[in-house]
Amino acid sequence: MIKKTDITWCPGCGNYAIRDVLEKVLHELPIPRKDIAFTSGIGQAAKMPQYLEVNYFNGLHGRSLPLAVGIKLARPDLTVVSYSGDGCLYGEGGNHFIHAIRRRLDLTIITSDNQIYGLTKGQSSPTTDFGVKNALDPRGNENIPLNPLSLAINMGAPFVARGYAGDKDHLGGIIREAILFKGTAVVDILQPCVSFNNINTYQWYHKRVFKVDNTPADRYEAMKLAEQWGDKIPIGIIYRDDKAECRELAKIFREPLTEADIREHLAMKCVMMR
């Protein structure tokens, strides 16, 4: 068992609430723990799998998704969840985020989005709001923030949601749906960082978030909802397409290559048999 005292997050960090939610959801899911594999990158959020009772591959900064894709392709029988921070997933691993969605795999992609680089102590992340000042942006962030939800919808993700660490029950529902969803499910979680983000605080989010009651069935409607940011921030399932089809995967692990396979292969393929 993981002792709370071993956890290295700052007291008050939004990740604690998310961890509680994840433990509860995993506990309730009809999936044996041994069949759940998490991947993560590097960052404060990326430590999440270490604090859960799951299989995990805690890889390199930015690379949690390729690991998840590899695991899923090799073992479709496993429930695969990629977990990381916004810097890791949308910054260093941004290319993988775009392309992993295109692969139409049954994956869950969850991000603790604290709009800042936590582990490296407070630099702008791809989701840091325009104009925010910090150590590496002393004059204020000059970049337009990336919107993970509209990007995910644009890339064809059939399940796109935003959760909030300050509303555990609501978040639990979203994560549960995301993991059970057959297809690529993207969940961006608003996660207050009490040490380095004194703008997007619990109070800041509390004032702005509102729950989406009716998930739009239309992609363009969903896009509009996903684009909302500022005074009113939607949380909940922003887009869901239950008809989207996952890719069919070959069984490979349970069917190792055999001598018979090789004989057949040699008889029919590129290598010329004489």
Binding site: T39, F57, L67, G70, I71, A74, L78
Partner: peptide, 8 residues
């Protein structure tokens, strides 16, 4: 590496 970790 993911696939190898998963057993292949």
């Amino acid at each position: 590496l993911g696939a190898s970790y998963a057993g292949v």
